[in-house]
Every structure is written in C-alpha cells, then in structure tokens.
C-alpha cells in the first residue's frame, strides 16, 4: 500500500470521528460562550447529537444491514449502540424539556434569560 492510499484510508476511516469532534466542540463553545439560556440548551442538544453520531458510527459494519434478522443475510451492524442511543434520544428530549421549563421559570422571576444580567441581579455591586 503506497503512502497516498494510506492517507486516503485514514481520511475515510476516521472522517466520521473528526466530524463528531467538530460538532461536539461547536456545542461546547455555545454552552460556555453564549449567555442566552435557550441557546445554551440548543448547544447541549448539538453536543448530545454528536455523541449519538459517534456511537452509531462505531456500530456500523461495512456491508452490514440493519440488525433485523432475515434469511440470506449474514452480516449485521452492531445492535448494541442502537439500543443505547434509542433510549438516550427519548431521555434527551425529556431532560431538554426540563431545561426549557426551568428557563421559563427563570424568565418569570428575573424578567430575562441572559446569564450576565441574572448574575448581576444576584450579586449587586
């Protein structure tokens, strides 16, 4: 195998994981740099989805099919990550809803959902 082919193999073999890292960091940046609580929750969702993509990518097998048993198919993708992520998605929306509910209550008590202003109101002076 010559060097160019090696690089191509590494690129296509690791591309999914690199994308996962990029998405994860975008979500992380939103969470730490943005002050708006709704935007922070959306950042968390992006972070979460990048983890889903990571798990599902790992479970994929070349030439495999969906893990539903059928005749004349011998190669299946790994069902275990699917199980974990399937439940994680629904738990994710339930917890996101909880976060949004908290944001609504914060808006009602403080009149804003910008982190800086809330901190200013909590620690005056």
């Amino acid at each position: 195998m010559d060097a160019g082919n090696d690089w191509a193999a590494a690129f296509f073999g690791l591309y999914n994981y690199w994308i996962v890292v990029v998405l994860m960091m975008v979500g992380f940046y939103i969470v730490i740099a943005h002050g708006n609580l709704i935007k922070k929750i959306i950042g968390l969702t992006i972070f979460q989805t990048s983890v889903f993509i990571y798990y599902i990518s790992m479970g994929n097998v070349d030439g495999g099919t969906a893990p539903i048993l059928a005749d004349n198919i011998s190669q299946y993708s790994n069902p275990l990550p699917h199980v974990l992520i399937l439940t994680a998605i629904v738990v994710g929306i339930a917890t996101t809803a909880l976060g949004l509910a908290l944001a609504i209550r914060i808006k009602e008590s403080y009149g804003t959902i910008e982190e800086e202003i809330i901190q200013g109101m909590d620690n005056p002076g």
Binding site: I38, I41, I42, T45, T49, F52, I56, S57, G59, N60, G64, T65, A66, P67, I68, Y76, S77, P81, H82, I85, L86, I89, V90, G92, I93, T96, A97, L100, A103, I104
Partner: peptide, 25 residues
C-alpha cells in the same frame, strides 16, 4: 448507518417535538 430504529426516534423527536417545545419556550 443501518440504525433504522434510532433514525425513527430521532426524526420524530429531533425534528418534531423538540422543535415545538423550543418554539413554545
């Protein structure tokens, strides 16, 4: 990625309900 069950869930949650809840918020 052959994860049909997961895709099912993500399509109804990620594109449906979560968008709606955020809009209401």
């Amino acid at each position: 990625m052959d994860a049909v069950d997961v895709a099912f869930t993500e399509a109804s949650v990620g594109a449906g309900i979560s968008t709606l809840l955020m809009l209401t918020t």
